[in-house]
Amino acid sequence: MFAEERQQKILDILNSKSSIKVMDIAELLNVSESTIRRDLQELEEKNLLMRTHGGAVGIYNRTNFEPSFVDKQDEKIDQKISIAEVASMMIEDGDTIILDSGTTTLEIAKRIRSRNITVITNSIDIASELSNKEGIEIIVTGGSLRSNTRAMVGHLTEAVIKNFRVDKAFVGANGISIEDGVTTPNFIEAQTKKTMINYASKVIIVADSTKFNNVSFSIICPIKAVSMIITSRDIEQNIIKEYSEVGVDIVTA
């Protein structure tokens, strides 16, 4: 196999998996790890990927990269709907919950069937969606609105959340890692998510499988602060096992 053909295969794999490991690609393409490292170096020099310890991530996966709400709205929509269906079934009559701003949590809001629940949210989209449903009390946090993610964040948002103790918090994330915890690109938004987590009895992260082994700029919480992760069914079984060993349940949708 020519180097150009091999490198194109590497990019194709990276586009579908978001991150790759040298040893896995070497085995898949039946070449030495040193050959793959040279390929990764050449691809990085062309600004087509970014090398990491033991592998590489897509160039769009730099720690401060943050896709907008609009960019994410239709991305992996089938997976988001499946995740939302599972999450919504975990909301019981009489629950108090936090719904973080995000495209997946918005899908949860659309599917809530429980009655007599209280929802605290920093999302104008979720508040609008729930305003037409009976049996739901909505508390909108207020705060500074980030146009990129349509999330209300900052000290005002956090001050409102601190007035409550909720049964469950459904929180989105850009990165999930056993070593680095749950992360997101923006520091201020990370602090708001952290406050949500601190005032919830049960913390449920909702994110598709591509978020695993990604690390963004700002830490939301260590992985042990998470009660459960609801993700897409294409996640690898070894990842489920690794998280189970540190006490975090992964539910696939």
Rank of each mutant, 00 (worst) to 15 (best):
I124E: 13
I117Q: 08
L48S: 08
S82V: 04
I10L: 10
D78V: 01
G102R: 02
F217K: 14
N116I: 00
K168N: 03
S16C: 06
D249W: 01
K168L: 03
K168A: 02
T118R: 12
I126F: 14
I223R: 04
S218V: 06
V246S: 08
D78K: 10
K72I: 00
N116T: 00
R62G: 07
D208Q: 11
N122H: 10
A173Y: 08
H155Q: 09
D249R: 10
I136S: 04
L130G: 06
K211R: 15
R165D: 03
V251W: 09
E158D: 10
I10R: 07
E4W: 05
S128R: 14
E245N: 12
D167C: 01
I197H: 10
N64P: 00
N47P: 00
I108N: 03
I81P: 01
V22H: 06
A109Y: 07
V22R: 10
R111E: 06
N214I: 13
A200T: 07
R115K: 15
S32F: 01
T118L: 12
Q8S: 05
V166T: 11
S216W: 12
P185S: 06
F187W: 09
I139T: 03
S201W: 10
K72A: 00
V70I: 15
S82Q: 14
D12P: 02
S232D: 15
E45K: 14
M152A: 12
G142S: 04
M90F: 07
Q7I: 01
I120K: 08
F187T: 04
S88Y: 11
T121K: 08
L99K: 04
T252R: 15
R6Y: 11
D249V: 02
D180L: 05
T192Y: 09
S144A: 11
D234P: 15
S128N: 14
S244M: 03
P222S: 04
Q7K: 13
S88Q: 05
I197G: 10
S16N: 13
V246P: 03
K76M: 09
P222G: 00
I223K: 04
R38N: 13
L99N: 02
K168H: 06
E107F: 00
N213M: 14
K110C: 00
V160M: 14
N148W: 05
I161C: 06
Q41V: 01
D167G: 05
V251G: 03
E137T: 04
K224S: 12
S144P: 03
A127L: 08
I223Y: 09
G135S: 02
V206K: 10
D95K: 03
T231Y: 14
I108S: 02
K194H: 15
E33T: 10
S144I: 14
N122D: 12
V57T: 10
I205D: 10
S34H: 08
I250S: 12
V166R: 13
R6P: 05
I13A: 08
N163H: 13
G142Q: 04
S32Y: 02
E242A: 11
M23F: 07
D249H: 07
K110T: 00
E44H: 04
D93Q: 03
I91N: 07
F170W: 09
C221L: 05
T149A: 11
E189M: 11
I240T: 02
M196P: 02
